[in-house]
């Protein structure tokens, strides 16, 4: 869906559902995932239909993912960190995961 205008400087590595991806320092998690070609970020708790970012500015909550074990984080607002473990979120997320 998206590619990087400038592919240099992608130096941070993180994992999405166990798969390593590289990101640029300063990327948001959502930006890094989109650049890596991730198409589904979560499924809804009501009908489990797939969702991906809609607004990228913190208002739609369709980019919710689990980051380092904490679910329902807004991927569009959080900056990537080296070693971060991101998981796409299925339905009602596990309480306390």
């Amino acid at each position: 869906m998206f590619k990087r205008l400038d592919d240099t400087g992608a130096t941070v590595s993180l994992k999405v559902d166990g798969k390593p991806i590289r990101a640029r320092a300063g990327d948001t998690v959502a930006g890094a995932m989109l650049a890596a070609g991730v198409e589904h970020f979560r499924t809804t708790p009501v009908t489990e239909s797939p969702r991906a970012p809609y607004c990228l500015m913190g208002v739609c909550f369709d980019c919710l993912v689990a980051i380092d074990g904490v679910g329902s984080r807004q991927a569009c607002l959080i900056e990537v960190r080296e070693g971060m473990a991101v998981e796409t979120q299925l339905g009602k997320r596990e309480a306390g995961r």
């Binding site: 869906m1 998206f2 640029r24 989109l34």
Partner: peptide, 25 residues
């Protein structure tokens, strides 16, 4: 409008400004 692949124009602009991402396809 809830399908992945449907976004706001502002989202694409944010992706460009903040991350240097441009749409492909």
């Amino acid at each position: 409008w809830t399908l992945p692949g449907v976004m706001t124009a502002g989202a694409a602009q944010t992706a460009l400004k903040a991350q240097g991402l441009v749409p492909t396809g």
